[in-house]
């Protein structure tokens, strides 16, 4: 399936979670989210957690807290 993080398209395995998407996008950014320095939101600016299950077409943004 294909998801979008910070407007970059990422192909990822079926059943992936937000954390998998972040790792594929940027391990550094993923570590920042894991450390609580950044957060992940959807297109409506609603937070999603790292264990959230992704669907084809999911749109996410990594933001400063």
């Amino acid at each position: 399936m294909v998801i979008t993080i910070n407007e970059k398209e990422i192909e990822i395995f079926d059943g992936a979670r937000v954390e998998n998407g972040l790792l594929k996008y940027s391990e550094e950014e993923c570590r920042a989210v894991q450390a609580g320095e950044k957060k992940v939101v959807d297109k409506n600016d609603n937070p999603v957690d790292l264990e959230g299950e992704l669907s084809d077409g999911s749109v996410l943004f990594i933001k400063e807290l």
């Binding site: 959807d42 600016d45 609603n46 937070p47 999603v48 264990e51 299950e53 992704l54 669907s55």
Partner: peptide
């Protein structure tokens, strides 16, 4: 449910 979305901004 499923996407673990905390909908602080309901849609």
């Amino acid at each position: 449910g499923h996407s673990h979305t905390l909908m602080v901004n309901p849609v």
